[in-house]
């Protein structure tokens, strides 16, 4: 497609793309603005002054239930899910590079895990704990429920990564006498680091925002999305928007930190003149 490309078609598509971005970000930006609504302001425009009132309300226990507790549970759970997702997907990704008995059923199981509606996973785990007489808690049953969602994504990303992985690096390490563990630790993991960080980010955000799979698996102490959901039915003030702003900002901090880390890793490699990153 040559230079005549920037014709009418290009500008129509560009316009469509801009509208889509507006559609994607407009609502979120709107509630961010509205969360600074004045004390007497309502759920929509006009802005009735400008205040931090609703953010203050957020941290009062009785106003919005257990915001502090639920956010710390969600953060801890998200971190655990991240660590487990990265390790388990990397291990499984390594396994799938070779033929092994049961590889195909395991692959289909992972795909099924993406296709089965979340509410079934939630109901199934809830029922299983019920039948076994075990109390579901956010760090046991909810952790398992979240992993059924994050692991298949992690595995698929690892497939894509290993498809482009140059095995010569491993063979070179082995030829120079590295043990399998040393090869993994000093060659494979550093080369895959950016992808592993990506898998981790995926795991964290999917878990941190997961609602349906948490519904029947969290037990007595809510995670943040459940708490937010409870609020949507009972809270009719801009405090809801303040909550939205805080959680969205938290997500953005996590995403930005991850992207910065990635850039830093890439730049450090470039600085060292290593070509390792180009393989991944």
């Amino acid at each position: 497609m040559g230079s005549e490309r920037k014709g009418l078609g290009y500008w129509l598509l560009a316009g469509f793309f801009c509208l889509f971005v507006l559609f994607l970000y407009g609502p979120t930006i709107t509630i961010m603005i509205l969360s600074f609504q004045g004390e007497n302001g309502g759920l929509t425009f006009p802005m009735n002054g400008f205040s931090l009132h609703w953010f203050g309300r957020l941290f009062e226990q009785q106003a919005v239930g257990d915001f502090g507790g639920s956010i710390s549970r969600s953060l801890i759970l998200g971190l655990v899910v991240t660590v487990v997702t990265v390790t388990v997907s990397l291990a499984a990704g390594l396994a799938f590079r070779r033929r092994f008995f049961g590889a195909t059923p395991l692959f289909y199981m992972a795909i099924a895990s993406l296709i089965v509606p979340s509410i079934l996973v939630s109901l199934g785990i809830g029922l299983m704990f019920n039948v076994l007489g075990i109390e579901p808690t956010w760090i046991t049953s909810a952790l398992g429920a979240h992993l059924t969602w994050t692991l298949p994504f992690g595995l698929l990303i690892m497939f894509a990564v290993f498809n482009r992985f140059n095995r010569a690096y491993e063979e070179a390490a082995r030829d120079q006498g590295a043990s399998p563990w040393q090869t993994l630790r000093h060659v494979v993991v550093p080369i895959l680091l950016p992808s592993l960080i990506g898998v981790g980010l995926f795991g964290f955000t999917l878990s941190y925002d997961e609602f349906a799979r948490s519904l029947m698996t969290t037990g007595s102490y809510n995670t943040l999305p459940l708490e937010i959901y409870g609020m949507t039915t009972s809270v009719t003030t801009p405090v809801l928007y303040a909550l939205g702003t805080v959680t969205t900002l938290l997500s953005i901090v996590v995403i930005t930190a991850t992207l910065l880390t990635l850039t830093w890793v890439q730049r450090r490699r470039a600085g060292k003149g290593s070509d390792a990153g180009k393989a991944a």
């Binding site: 388990v88 499984a92 033929r99 008995f101 590889a103 079934l120 992993l147 692991l151």
Partner: peptide, 25 residues
């Protein structure tokens, strides 16, 4: 043996938190 060891964690998580729950349903 390595692929089996490497695939076991994934298999276990999916068995306990996907397959058995659906059978329970």
């Amino acid at each position: 043996l390595a692929p089996y060891l490497q695939a076991t964690p994934l298999g276990l998580v999916l068995a306990v938190f996907l397959v058995i729950p659906i059978l329970t349903i």
